[in-house]
Nucleic acid binder design. Structure first.
Lengths: 319, 319
DNA sequence: GTGAAAGCGCTAACAA
DNA sequence: TTGTTAGCGCTTTCAC
């Protein structure tokens, strides 16, 4: 910076004013500084700037499980939006483990991120981690939530379930069952609860884990317990794919006797033949809202932003 | 830090020495400092440290396409290894676009990452980006490569193809064809070249893009042009899944008349029935090697590290 | 509008 | 072994 100042014949203060664009200077000075900087290949050192401004212009993101295909899509949406705001993304993976999640949060806080985005692993066991972090910086819970002490940006799962049930009913399917996964995942829990409240026979719910095999097993179990079932609403796409596979193995053509619908609209549902209907989260809008909360310098009251999902209708529910 | 020093009755230098662990102090001082720090909830400010040490202890990773399921696995392996070394991960996505890749590299360099890991989008069009970046910091090309001026950590694709052909031959399949994707992707290109060199009829190669649909189309085309084909070696799993789907649609049971094998061993191949054989990259070892090169402070000569892949044999090639 | 100077929080060189 | 001090690169008062 000194070199640039010398070459431009101004003080380092003016160089800073020009290059950071945070203050007015005469056009003459601005031009000389820009020329000098370009000539010397000078680029502002963000570390010095961060120290001075007490802001790293970096946001941390702790995803519950990066290998779950929904999270890369979410990560991409966030990274995109952050880049648009000139913010960096420090990523950490909790690997579905609350202890690792706590570690990851601590590591990112130690790096002085300006804000922290988290998709909590567990409704109950992530609560303290989130609450404590939110005393140190702005925390935005994304997709999932665990604490009322931090912002939450997610999808309106109740409305999504309602839309699914309407869609199924419109196709004459009035005897759905719900294949859930771990109810400690807030999204799964909300979907299950909404189903219980809204479905014709809301008690037809099976709960297992987040896996293809569980989808297979649950299909057999559901059709055994409730033989008249004409639709299986799944807590996520991986389960839905397992369900679809099992139905095919049992000789059903989809939708045929049983319609199938998943959640999150990951690429998985496109790999099935026929493709499986799924609710898509509006990731771009969610990312924009989350980053706005994260980048907002003023202290705002805790927000809870719910976006509507969009049911992607495919042959698994509407031939 | 001043508060900690005062409370412990020592200088800030001693606080630094204790908390950074980079210098010897008496146990008495160390204990008083640690107590004081804990009492005050003090945590070293990494920004100040970075400025002083001229090192951010952070590594940048530019992935070619985070929504391609191979890259989350790679990202996870890297993040894991970096965390083990106390290093942070700044992530950026190139979205399969060389212009965005160049931007991403520039943004991470501006943030003064200690090293840059990149999976180049294109063998030819990413070359300048990589070469120029490697003049500014340590660059490690991961999985794919584009420039000889930076390290490369990847899989031995030639050997992998050789293993695949041996495996197929052992099961009596001696008339394979290769379904490639974009040869600008270095891995795809190497796999294709090895096939051409090693396969019984190395000219039986189709080249398309990286998609499910191309897998479907290519299957039809391959069986039309070379009706005796008894195995389809695919440049990646997504193509392999498309191939498997198409074979099923054509009424073949896998492996039956045509065996199928993919690359990268992503979760996609498990979603097929039956599961599809695939070559797994040794991600943990590759990540360890890449991070070692990235974290190594001494200037080492350009390295090119190839790890052997492991063929995961499944019913699509061995019933 | 511009420059001089202070200071963000840290660590290393130097002195004691 | 420990303390004093300078300085990493930046931005922002404050004085002009």
């Amino acid at each position: 910076m000194h070199d640039v100042a010398r070459l431009a014949g101004v003080s380092t203060a003016s160089v800073s004013r020009v290059l950071s664009g945070r203050r007015r200077v005469t056009e003459d000075v601005a031009e000389r500084v820009r020329d000098a900087a370009e000539h010397l290949g000078y680029e502002v050192n963000t570390v010095g700037r961060s120290l001075r401004l007490q802001s790293t212009e970096t946001v941390g993101l702790v995803v519950a499980d990066i290998t779950n295909p929904f999270f890369p899509s979410l990560t991409k949406a966030i990274e995109d939006e952050l880049a648009r705001h000139g913010l960096g993304l420090l990523l950490a993976d909790a690997a579905n483990d609350v202890a690792r999640e706590r570690d990851a949060v601590a590591r990112l806080l130690a790096r002085r991120v300006d804000a922290l985005l988290v998709t909590p692993v567990s409704r109950s066991k992530s609560r303290r981690t989130i609450a404590e972090a939110s005393e140190r910086t702005t925390v935005v819970q994304l997709d999932r939530h665990a604490s009322a002490k931090a912002h939450y940006v997610g999808m309106d799962n109740g409305r999504a379930i309602s839309d699914v049930l309407d869609h199924l009913a419109a196709h004459g399917r009035t005897r759905p069952a719900f294949i859930g996964s771990d109810p400690e995942i807030s999204t799964t829990w909300e979907r299950q609860r909404a189903f219980t409240r809204l479905a014709p026979r809301g008690d037809r719910v099976l709960v297992g884990d987040f896996s293809l095999d569980w989808g297979r097993t649950a299909t057999v179990e559901a059709l055994r317990r409730w033989p008249a079932t004409d639709a299986l609403v799944c807590a996520d796409d991986l389960i839905a794919v397992g369900v679809a596979e099992q139905l095919r193995a049992m000789g059903h053509t989809m939708p045929g006797r049983v319609a199938v619908v998943g959640f999150d609209d990951t690429m998985l549902v496109h790999l099935q033949t026929p493709p499986v209907s799924s609710i898509r989260q509006p990731l771009a809008e969610m990312a924009a809202a989350a980053v706005e909360l994260a980048a907002g310098h003023e202290q705002v009251p805790i927000r809870r932003l719910l976006f509507p999902g969009v049911l992607q209708v495919r042959p698994s529910t509407a031939p």
